[in-house]
């Protein structure tokens, strides 16, 4: 018994991480931390994908997780570039100051 882990444990872990990430996105003003929280959420999702992949015995979930990583990489690259750009203009990285929707 001790060697088996019920699947919903993984799912709960994923949900907790996801919730933490979401709270981070909602609460933090610092754009960098918001970004990292997003990464956290992505990882939580990855965990779910991998869990179900294991559960179904089908490694397609791994592939999706791989693709998610690629997307996360792209997102991080572009997002950080945007942050740099905004920082140059406004000298702050606070997300609640970025509400003009166009520059």
């Amino acid at each position: 018994m001790i060697n088996t882990i019920p699947i919903h444990y993984f799912l709960l872990l994923s949900a907790m991480l996801f919730t933490i990430g979401m709270l981070g996105v909602i609460f933090r003003r610092n754009a960098l931390i918001v970004f990292m929280s997003i990464e956290l959420m992505l990882n939580a999702v990855n965990l779910t994908l991998v869990t179900f992949s294991r559960f179904r015995g089908d490694s397609s979930g791994h592939v999706i997780a791989f693709l998610v990583m690629a997307v996360a990489a792209a997102e991080a690259a572009v997002g950080l570039a945007i942050i740099i750009n905004i920082f140059r203009h406004k000298k702050v990285v606070n997300i609640d100051t970025m509400d003009r929707m166009k520059y």
């Binding site: 060697n3 088996t4 882990i5 019920p6 699947i7 919903h8 993984f10 869990t51 294991r54 559960f55």
Partner: peptide
């Protein structure tokens, strides 16, 4: 939706 435990 508690499902069957995943064996490791």
């Amino acid at each position: 939706h508690k499902v069957a435990p995943v064996t490791l």
